[in-house]
């Protein structure tokens, strides 16, 4: 195990930021700590780094208990949310910093430092910026320099706090893929914090979902998406339609294919792509009609409205490929038949 957290708890005043966290992260993974703001994810990252002390629990890095070790002895690389580049130093000096502050015996020579810094600059593809100051760089460039600076000390673990949070949407897209490729190249165990589920799905090999200071679920992106273990995870990861079998119209739910005679829970979560929409032969008996739709590139999102006598009108979202939607040639206001292919049940 590269990182092991054992019963970590942390409290700020009366606010419980982390509550008995146990987590194991194998060597070489790229892990996303995902959760809404205030869920404790940044605090957890800072505790792993040694920038924050846990009230209880232990942190192991590569099998060593580092709980009482200060940050400088932990061999971690930390990329700060706002990069924290040293503004009075050039890009070169920023990256060289971690090498230059080493004790004299371990410190590389200036020539070695120069080679190392330039190879890191080439790695992040910014060698031409070596004599600039941080305030002369764009956000995306700062991000990559901050990463190069953290990598300079050859950390055994790389920690990134909201690495894309402060960037424009277009830059963010590019950097996500770039980070993923870089991780493949370097294969250093990495953890990044994010509140953006799409980002977590796209970049990471493992996702840890946090809520209210507790781990809700840990797994690969597809596990998290396809087998959410809790109501919270299901709602947080991707869009979902929620049906309460106690409140909803049994007859109608049955007609859509959800089994209500022997339900596995009382709440059914259905992803939009798990609802198929068909033209109905009997419009008078179908309570669902097409209200509107949006193009999402390759797929179409359908907004379906249901006017039942049991519950207030609710909107149901369904998705289908573009082609299929064209074939159906549905009109606004047209009544349709729904078929629910798959649901997640919660209590």
């Amino acid at each position: 195990m590269s990182i092991t957290l054992h019963k970590i708890s942390k409290q700020f005043g009366t606010f419980k930021a982390l509550d008995n966290i146990n987590l194991e992260i194998p060597e070489g993974e790229l892990v996303a700590l995902l959760g809404p703001s205030g869920c404790g994810k940044t605090t957890l990252l800072r505790i792993i780094a040694g920038l924050e002390q846990a009230d209880q629990g232990d942190v192991f890095l590569k099998g060593d208990n580092v709980t009482d070790q200060p940050v400088k002895n932990r061999q971690i690389g930390f990329v700060f949310q706002h990069y924290a580049l040293f503004r009075h130093m050039t890009v070169f000096d920023n990256i060289a910093f971690g090498l230059r502050v080493k004790p004299r015996k371990q410190r590389p020579s200036e020539a070695q430092i120069r080679d190392k810094v330039h190879s890191l600059l080439q790695l992040v593809q910014l060698d031409w910026l070596h004599d600039r100051f941080p305030d002369q760089l764009s956000g995306g460039q700062r991000q990559r320099i901050a990463l190069a600076r953290a990598l300079a000390v050859e950390p055994s673990v790389l920690l990134l706090d909201e690495p894309f949070g402060a960037l424009d949407a277009s830059v963010r897209k590019d950097l996500r893929l770039w980070l993923r490729h870089l991780h493949h190249e370097l294969n250093v165990t990495s953890i990044f914090v994010t509140h953006d589920q799409e980002e977590a799905m796209e970049v990471s090999s493992q996702i840890v979902v946090l809520n209210h200071g507790k781990i809700e679920q840990k797994g690969t992106p597809s596990e998290i998406y396809d087998q959410p273990k809790s109501d919270f995870v299901s709602r947080f990861i991707g869009q979902t339609n929620v049906f309460h079998i106690e409140d909803d119209d049994h007859g109608w739910l049955k007609s859509t294919g959800i089994i209500v005679d022997d339900p596995k829970g009382i709440v059914a979560h259905v992803r939009p792509h798990n609802i198929s929409v068909e033209k109905t032969a009997d419009p008078a008996n179908s309570p669902v009609y097409l209200k509107d739709w949006q193009h999402l590139g390759g797929t179409i999102r359908l907004e379906l409205q249901r006017n039942g006598n049991h519950s207030p009108a609710t909107t149901i979202y369904a998705e289908m490929p573009n082609e299929q939607f064209k074939e159906l040639a549905l009109q606004k206001g047209e009544h349709v038949t729904l078929r629910i292919k798959h649901a997640h049940w919660f209590n």
Binding site: T43, G50, L51, E52, Q53, P70, V71
Partner: peptide, 9 residues
């Protein structure tokens, strides 16, 4: 932002 506890000194 919670104040850092790891600052030395």
């Amino acid at each position: 932002m919670p104040q850092s506890h790891i600052m030395p000194g």
